[in-house]
């Protein structure tokens, strides 16, 4: 599709910008075709037409309004730098600037609420989990619908099962299953990643048998259809 017509969401609805080049009938036909192609999206839409410096006569504009209203699209305003076009719009009872639209009282208080600008520093909601502030010894089991964070070691024989991620600030030697609900984007991080067995979603792996390996913080994740470990760095 060419770029003679561009759409942009604005507070009041949609801003339809029509390029000043090209013939008006072609342009309006293209707009109507686009609306027909996405009729569900445009149904009930309220649009502002920005036509630039183009001169649009009153009957031309009225024709377009008719075509649009037949498709359940109402026109709020016509924005133009051309005096004749502004005149045409005024005669048809349309607004000619967005600031005029702004002055309109909101239709309902609910909409006003929805239209409040987002806060500058939106609160981070994050995701839930459990914190274990000691070493998990052999035989201990931790299950969580969220993430699991352990401040301490996870010894061989201990088991962690989490739907989310698993972070161990210590040595991980036990069995751990992250993304237990099937989330393949889950990760397992540890200061020393040496689990008996590590699972992420439906993938499963064991630690490489290399005791000379220097302990370093590592993160395990699913990549290329298998579990890989990489350096865990901030």
């Amino acid at each position: 599709m060419d770029d003679s017509i561009t759409l942009k969401g604005i507070k009041q609805g949609l801003l339809v910008t029509m390029k000043p080049e090209g013939r008006w009938p072609d342009l309006t036909a293209r707009l109507v075709a686009q609306i027909d192609a996405q009729s569900a999206f445009f149904r009930g839409a309220r649009v502002a037409l920005a036509v630039g410096p183009r001169e649009v006569r009153r009957h031309e504009l009225a024709n377009l309004l008719k075509l649009l209203s037949a498709r359940d699209v109402s026109v709020l305003a016509v924005l133009s730098e051309d005096a004749a076009t502004i005149g045409s719009a005024r005669k048809l009872g349309l607004k000619t600037s967005l600031t005029e639209l702004e002055l309109e009282p909101p239709d309902s208080s609910f909409e006003a609420l929805a239209e409040l600008p987002p806060p500058i520093d939106p609160e981070e909601h994050g995701t839930g989990g459990v914190l274990i502030k000691r070493t998990l010894r052999n035989g201990r089991v931790v299950r969580s619908d969220g993430h699991v964070v352990v401040l301490g070691d996870v010894n061989a024989g201990a088991v962690i099962v989490a739907r989310g991620d698993v972070i161990v600030w210590g040595r991980l030697r036990g069995t751990v299953h992250a993304g237990a609900g099937g989330d393949e984007s889950a990760v397992v991080c540890a200061l020393n990643l040496a689990p008996t067995q590590l699972r992420i979603a439906s993938y499963i792996t064991i630690s490489p048998d290399d005791s000379r390996r220097k302990a370093r913080p590592e993160m395990a994740l699913v990549r290329n259809g298998r579990i890989e470990a990489e350096a865990w760095e901030p």
Binding site: R137, N138, R140, N155, A156, G157
Partner: peptide
Amino acid sequence: VRDADRIIGLIE
């Protein structure tokens, strides 16, 4: 050592 770890966990 594994079993000792298990026992210490139970005591803790």
